[in-house]
Design a protein around this nucleic acid. Structure first.
Length: 241
DNA sequence: TCATTAAATTGTT
DNA sequence: AACAATTTAATGA
């Protein structure tokens, strides 16, 4: 690399490959796609960077091209409450974009990530003109509703192994996160942040899940072998001797 | 391309 | 929280 390393461009157009990885782009007519592509911007976020903050006016509808983001909301006492992971292929913020309100979540990069942004005006234009886009949004909202209900259940789980299993299953959701595929790139530390457990405990849970055969633990990631089994995990971690 | 070194991640206590 | 072991990434010949 002989380029300058001082001022790497924070915002650039998308490559054809990145474009192809956007799930809803294929549902548009060529005219609609043209307009969307012209507006799409991609930004590189370093670990710890905020993609959006609570209270800021909505300017973009976001999608994860690569990397891993976490969504957190602060309650009245300023305590950070909910964590949801956003792996590649996930698009978010349509709720607030629809109402043109301000963001109700903090979105932070857990590691170096590439985030695509579609301006709210274009978002609304697509809603007004594209049936395919409307289907995508409707499907997305519906799927996420299911996810939130599941998330409430997960929060009430006291068994760490099951918490980890369910949280992982959510991250492997092929509808919400089509960019994930077979292998989810996530470290055990990152997963620990998302689930709200220590890395040690997550490691223990992952080992148990691997023994069960639903996943395989790999360096810097996890491979899903049986998503159904992962979702349905009910075993109690401590074997009764 | 290969060998060496540094950094990141994992497994364990 | 700390440590050693393992894997990957970076570097330079």
């Amino acid at each position: 690399m002989s380029y300058d390393k001082s001022l790497h461009q924070r915002r650039r157009p998308l490559t054809a490959l990145e474009l192809d990885a956007i799930p809803w782009i294929h549902l548009l007519t060529s005219a609609e796609r043209q307009r969307a592509v012209d507006d799409l911007k991609i930004t590189d976020a370093s670990a710890g960077d905020y993609v959006c903050r609570t209270g800021r006016p909505v300017t973009y509808w976001f999608g994860v091209i690569d990397g891993l983001l976490k969504m957190s909301s602060d309650n009245a006492e300023g305590k950070t409450m909910t964590f949801i992971g956003m792996p590649p292929g996930g698009w978010f913020g349509e709720g607030t974009a629809l109402k043109r309100e301000s963001y109700r979540y903090n979105i932070q990069a857990l590691r170096r990530s590439r985030v695509a942004g579609l301006h709210v005006d274009t978002f609304h234009w697509l809603l007004d003109h594209s049936i395919g886009f409307n289907r995508f949004i409707m499907n997305q909202l519906n799927e996420r509703l299911g996810q939130f209900i599941a998330a409430r259940e997960i929060d009430r789980m006291n068994n760490p192994d099951i918490r980890v299993a369910r949280s992982l299953a959510a991250l492997f959701n092929p509808v919400l996160y089509p960019g994930v595929g077979e292998v989810l790139r996530i470290t055990q530390q990152e997963l620990a942040y998302l689930v709200g457990l220590s890395r040690q405990r997550v490691n223990e849970a992952l080992t148990a899940l691997a023994e069960q055969g639903s996943i395989r633990v790999e360096y810097g990631g996890l491979r899903v072998l049986d998503l159904q089994a992962l979702r349905a995990t009910v075993f109690t971690s401590k074997p009764v001797v």
